[in-house]
């Protein structure tokens, strides 16, 4: 699948626009909504984790467990131990590739 120009433009608007909305509209308003502020700060944890699940144990709309899960599990331990980004990424690839080559 290819990223169409429309998709790129839509993502550009969403990604850059939300920063301005946050800075000049949301910020002053959220100052009066402490609970919402806390919740909003947690949205990335929830949503990015959902993307991770999709990329790790799914194939289309079916759950499929394969060597990816082992690679990501190793990555999780390394992230938790505060390993540098490049180490996390290389370890995930190495573990997954090694498991696949073993069959």
């Amino acid at each position: 699948m290819t990223m169409s120009v429309a998709v790129i433009v839509a993502l550009v608007i969403g990604v850059w626009g939300q920063r301005l909305v946050g800075a000049f509209v949301l910020g002053p308003w959220l100052d009066r909504q402490p609970k919402l502020t806390r919740m909003a700060g947690l949205v990335p944890a929830a949503v990015v984790m959902a993307v991770i699940v999709q990329l790790t144990v799914a194939q289309g709309r079916t759950i499929e467990v394969d060597a990816r899960l082992a690679g990501v599990a190793v990555a999780a331990v390394l992230v938790w131990r505060r390993a540098p980004f490049i180490v996390v990424v290389i370890a995930a690839a190495a573990v997954t590739a090694a498991l696949r080559s073993l069959g």
């Binding site: 990501v72 990555a75 690839a93 696949r100």
Partner: peptide, 16 residues
């Protein structure tokens, strides 16, 4: 074969 499909979720995990 290179395990790159596991790299993408691993990278996201490191970001958050």
């Amino acid at each position: 074969q290179l395990g790159l499909d596991a790299v993408f979720p691993a990278a996201l995990l490191a970001i958050i």
